[in-house]
């Protein structure tokens, strides 16, 4: 069981936020869809755009560009939402665009340095290199469940 984990390279969905290229574990991605009108939620943080109806399920939408100050967020027909399945929850994330699915061998991933990304290293699994380009690998589970995202009722 463990060996297969090591042999099979992980696949990542890559996407852009501002000028940076990010990647998340493809297994966490449920679907990709265009950005629709959202229903706003009062007194929520600015990066929480609101909630949408995804085939009868109510799904919150976060905009990481606002959360991490990456470029100016704008919403047009090219704006994309990655719908993710994380910790038994369905959450949408607005990104500037989806690029590709890449497979990374473990040796292609190095630990994330302390500086160099808008994201706290706590929420990164590492940095990958694909065709000479740097890919920042998000620990999406940790990020979305963090208190600062305010996406879940705190246990207390």
């Amino acid at each position: 069981m463990d060996t297969s984990e090591r042999i099979i390279p992980h696949e990542y969905l890559t996407f852009t936020l501002g000028n940076e290229e990010y990647g998340i574990d493809i297994l966490k991605v449920q679907e990709i869809r265009g950005y629709d009108a959202v229903t706003r939620i009062a007194n929520a943080p600015e990066f929480l755009k609101g909630v949408i109806n995804l085939r009868g399920v109510i799904v919150p939408i976060v905009d990481m560009r606002i959360r991490f100050n990456l470029g100016t967020p704008h919403y047009d027909e090219f704006t994309v939402v990655i719908i993710m399945n994380v910790l038994n929850r369905v959450i949408g994330m607005v990104v500037d665009g989806v690029s590709d699915v890449v497979a990374l061998e473990p040796e292609q991933i190095r630990p994330a340095p302390e500086l160099g990304s808008a994201l706290d290293t706590r929420y990164l699994t590492g940095l990958g290199t694909v065709n000479g380009q740097m890919l920042i690998l998000m620990d999406i589970e940790k990020l979305l469940s963090s208190d600062e995202m305010q996406l879940m009722d705190s246990a207390a």
């Binding site: 609101g50 009868g56 799904v59 369905v90 009722d153």
Partner: peptide, 25 residues
């Protein structure tokens, strides 16, 4: 519909629903 299933409780609301136009209220 539950807001808590994927999000959290929103003050002053008892949940949400989906209207005829497909939007959440």
């Amino acid at each position: 519909k539950s807001l808590e299933a994927n999000y959290r409780k929103v003050e002053g609301t008892a949940g949400a629903t989906i209207l005829g136009d497909g939007r959440v209220a």
